[in-house]
Amino acid sequence: MEYKQRISFVGAGSMAEALMSGMLQEGLFVPSQITITNRSDQERLMNLNKRYNVNTTYDLKGVIEQATIIILAMKPKDITDGVKKIAPYIHDNHLVISVLAGISTSKITSLIGKNVAVIRAMPNTSATIGKSATALSKGEFAKSEHLEIAKTLFETVGIVTTVEEQDLHAVTGLSGSGPAYVYYLVEAMERAASEVGLEQEVAKDLILQTIIGAAEMLKSSTKQPSTLRKEVTSPGGTTEAGIKVLEEFNYQDAMVSCIKRATARSTELGSSL
Score class of each variant (00 low, 15 high):
D253W: 02
N250L: 05
T222E: 13
F249G: 08
R261S: 15
L228Y: 05
Y251W: 13
K230H: 11
V256W: 07
M255G: 06
G242W: 07
P235M: 09
A241N: 11
E248D: 15
R229F: 10
L246K: 06
V232Y: 03
V245I: 12
K230E: 14
S221F: 06
G242K: 00
K260Y: 12
S220C: 09
G237L: 02
I243T: 09
G242S: 08
P225K: 09
E231R: 06
E247N: 06
T239D: 01
K219G: 11
K244N: 14
E248I: 01
K223D: 13
P235Q: 00
E248G: 03
K219N: 12
T239Y: 05
P235D: 05
D253C: 05
S234G: 00
T239P: 07
S234H: 05
G237M: 04
K260D: 11
S220N: 14
K244C: 06
Q224V: 02
R261N: 15
I243L: 12
G236T: 05
S221Q: 05
T239S: 05
L228D: 07
F249C: 12
M255W: 11
R261L: 12
A254Y: 10
A254T: 11
L246A: 02
Y251T: 11
C258G: 11
I243K: 04
M255P: 09
T222G: 11
Q252A: 10
R261Q: 13
G236H: 04
R229I: 09
C258F: 05
M255V: 14
D253Q: 10
I259C: 10
K244H: 13
T227A: 10
R229S: 03
P225W: 07
L228M: 12
S257G: 14
S220W: 10
K260M: 09
G237V: 06
T233N: 00
K244Q: 13
K223H: 06
S220A: 12
M255F: 12
R261F: 11
I243H: 07
I259L: 08
T227C: 00
V232S: 13
E248L: 09
R229C: 08
P235V: 03
E240W: 05
E247D: 15
K244R: 12
Q224P: 08
L246N: 06
A241G: 04
G236R: 08
K230D: 12
A241E: 01
L246D: 03
G237N: 02
S220Q: 14
N250V: 00
I259Y: 01
L228Q: 03
V232G: 10
T238D: 04
I243P: 02
E248A: 14
Q252V: 13
V232Q: 05
S226V: 10
G236F: 03
A241M: 03
T227K: 10
P235A: 01
S257D: 15
K260R: 13
V245L: 07
K219C: 07
I259K: 04
T222C: 00
K260P: 09
L246E: 02
R261H: 09
Y251D: 05
N250A: 14
K260T: 10
E240H: 00
